[in-house]
């Protein structure tokens, strides 16, 4: 079985996000870029499945300009066998990303597609579900545990009410949550080996997808700041204030 893992190049989670003064976007000048942390977790899970002997090959795929090859190389250094870059300078919205990934799914016929539950830049949380819908296959989002057996994935999902378990027939799309695993550190020699692993570049235009209806983002603004509230004098006053606000 092959596992396909989608990884997105995003602004690193340590970077202080700042909206440009003209509202045209966030400042990404000279900021650190990384693999989306949830995607890194997805990749780690794929590698563990392979290391457990339940998959033969792990393929990482990313959509973007040539700069995303850096993240693909990191994925290869973590242990993926080969990489595919869907080459485009446009920032794809989730639907188009899902359609592009579907083309790769059709080429590669993976038994499992692992993605992060969401990218920490746009916070959309859509691509995995959309890919599953377009592919006509099951989805198991927010995974905190994945067990593969006999063509079925039993997935524990972190839902608001607790831990839900579902079983889905393979092939399927699974999206990772934070607690699925802790990604490995890359050993230095693996970085060198990764340079020699295959990285296939496929121009987006060659995939022939229709991007469909697009949302347009017209303006960015910084979030409203919290303001100073009221001061109370005693515990009793605090309790009655909370009651007034319907919080107790």
């Amino acid at each position: 079985m092959k596992i396909l893992v989608g990884i997105k190049r995003v602004v690193d989670y340590n970077v202080r996000i700042r909206v440009k003064p003209d509202g045209s976007g966030v400042d990404t000048d000279g900021v650190k870029m990384s693999i989306n942390p949830f995607d890194e977790i997805a990749l780690e899970e794929a590698l563990r499945i392979k290391e457990a002997g339940k998959a033969e090959e792990v393929i990482v795929v990313s959509i973007g300009g040539d700069e995303c090859q850096q993240q693909l190389r990191t994925g290869l250094a973590m242990g993926a066998d080969r990489a595919i870059q869907i080459q485009t300078d446009q920032a794809l919205q989730p639907l188009a990303a899902a359609k592009a990934l579907l083309k790769i799914v059709q080429q590669e016929q993976p038994g499992l597609v692992l993605l992060g539950k969401q990218a920490i830049d746009d916070d959309n949380n859509q691509t995995g579900q959309m890919l599953a819908a377009l592919w006509g296959r099951p989805q198991a989002t927010f995974a905190s545990q994945v067990v593969l057996e006999d063509g079925t994935a039993t997935v524990t999902r972190e839902v608001d009410a607790g831990l839900e378990t579902i079983a889905v027939d393979l092939p399927a799309v699974v999206t990772s949550d934070l607690r699925l695993n802790e990604p490995r550190f890359v050993k230095l020699p693996e970085i060198m080996k990764a340079k020699r692993k295959p990285l296939d570049v496929q121009p987006l235009a060659d995939l022939g997808i229709e991007s469909g209806h697009q949302l347009s983002v017209t303006r960015h603004a910084p979030p409203a700041q919290r303001a100073r509230g009221v001061m109370v004098e005693s515990a009793a006053e605090l309790v009655s204030e909370l009651k007034n606000r319907g919080l107790l």
Binding site: R16, V26, I120, D121, L215, T218, H220, P222, P223
Partner: peptide, 15 residues
């Protein structure tokens, strides 16, 4: 809607 974990708010227009 918020992006970047609420560190930026965007105006979005649906077609």
């Amino acid at each position: 809607r918020p992006i970047y974990a609420g560190n930026a708010i965007v105006d979005v227009e649906a077609p």
